[in-house]
Nucleic acid binder design. Structure first.
Lengths: 266, 266
DNA sequence: TTATACCGTCCCATATAGTGGGACATATGG
DNA sequence: CCATATGTCCCACTATATGGGACGGTATAA
């Protein structure tokens, strides 16, 4: 049938193992709240019969949970694997206590991410105590140039990578009509250069209206960028003066994580 | 070929969809640190060729990450789904702020779990500030009768379920030589009865040497058990006097979660 | 209340889709 | 330097997933 071009986003014909990929797509659908065999079959373009078989297998393996007259939910095995996946990135475990301390000091939401191609991959998120909720989640991806976190990492990259990353981001943003358009390249570049000089950068509602943040890069012992760190909050909590005093604090915590990365490798 | 009987443990012939189940087994193996196609094929009883095809598919779907000359790691998609899986349990989101407060007050590690058959499923864990690390993880399972958290939930169950749960736990424990053997049934039962009268229960190094904890059950609006809550720490931080004063605090927080469950259903 | 639509579950003939043996290039270690 | 091991690719074979359909139970509509 017709494929909606928005679904699996990137690569179209991922080769190999149809059954496995279908099963994984079932997980994705359930994570989006589709919770009965009929709808899942429809979304996948397969008969209910097939969808049901996949669902049963996933349930029996603990990847899904089936609540009799309610539907399917993501299962405990995914909670477990998700935890493990996060732990397998050494940066994440090393950084966690530092993030927690920073969240405690500032009261705001703290993010940790690593660069992955032209995107930032969110690895951890410590909620602030102001009770406001951000859309970001660990495991999520965003173009590097569009977030404070991503820009923080760009500060520690060679300058010749800036423009391609900016272009990639602008292109993606252009495909989503509702989004905030990125600022012009010269401004963007100037902003990054200022940031590099200071050691930290700002995001003044560029990514999301109403949210401001301060970020700084984490480097490994060779000096290359290993991760990024940001503190985010709603505009009323983030006046210019606070942004300015938060900068060095964030940079210091990023440096502390860098220091810890120097220890053991495992 | 010969199957080692320890591998997939529980259910033998899970019917249906071999390919999918194999793929999921690959995820499990990678989570255990097996990180190359050869070993994975061997552990699964399939040729490298097949293992490689599964691995590639999982990589292309973002469930695994492949580091060229190092091996396979759990991928970002699992971090994302794990997060979602935890959020899809309403208890977890409702309880989190309460857990955090309790962790703040006590300085110790706080666990949240729900009953799942004869086991407790850990849903959330807030680390204490004493810097000691416990083996428990969200997504993990343990027999109900062997943990403070599990016993807390048993307090809110009908008495006729106590003995079968105790037996199930004892049986499992018997299969693991190194573990602490459970106390005799009459003692266990008496302990639970005292606990029910008080509204909270203790775990005095029954599950793990050196760890003591205090737990209390969370009930839904119909009065049935919905979850359990426990505060755990090392013996030096948990003298008898502290256990006694912690009890009512834990019970009060459990009650607060129960109250919050009364709100909306979604 | 009765009627209807939908869901979960199971079965089975068909051919599609996964399988696994093997070959090749590249990288690691002795 | 050679030996070992890993990622990658190919292709004939058949084991395996597929999907049409039927049945019983449950919620929603009439």
């Amino acid at each position: 049938m017709g494929e909606d071009p928005v679904s699996t986003a990137a690569s179209g014909a991922a080769k190999g193992t149809q059954t496995l990929l279908r099963g994984l797509d079932v997980l994705r659908l359930v994570s989006e709240g589709v919770s009965d065999a009929g709808s899942i079959g429809r979304a996948l373009g397969v008969p209910r019969s097939t969808a049901h078989r996949l669902l049963s297998s996933l349930v029996s393996a603990g990847y899904l949970h089936h609540v009799p007259q309610a539907g399917y939910l993501l299962g405990p095995q995914l909670i477990f694997l998700g935890q493990r996946a996060a732990e397998q990135r050494p940066v994440r475990s090393l950084a966690e206590p530092v993030l927690r301390e920073l969240a405690g000091i500032t009261g705001d939401t703290v993010h940790l991410g690593i660069p992955d191609g032209a995107e930032v991959l969110y690895l951890d998120k410590i909620e602030g105590t102001r009770g406001l909720e951000m859309r970001s989640r660990p495991g999520q991806r965003m173009p590097l140039a569009l977030t404070g976190l991503g820009k923080a990492m760009m500060l520690a990259m060679p300058e010749d990578r800036w423009e391609p990353l900016y272009r990639a981001a602008a292109e993606i943003q252009a495909r989503h009509p509702g989004r905030v358009p990125p600022r012009p390249w010269p401004d963007f570049r100037a902003d990054l250069e200022e940031g590099r000089a200071r050691g930290f950068c700002f995001d003044l509602e560029e990514n999301e209206y109403g949210i401001r943040c301060v970020g700084a890069p984490v480097r490994d012992l060779s000096g290359k960028v290993a991760a990024g760190l940001s503190v985010a909050s709603a505009v009323p909590f983030m006046p210019e003066t606070r942004l300015a005093e938060l900068g060095p604090v964030v940079a210091a915590h990023a440096a502390e994580i860098s220091r810890r990365l120097g220890g053991r490798s495992e």
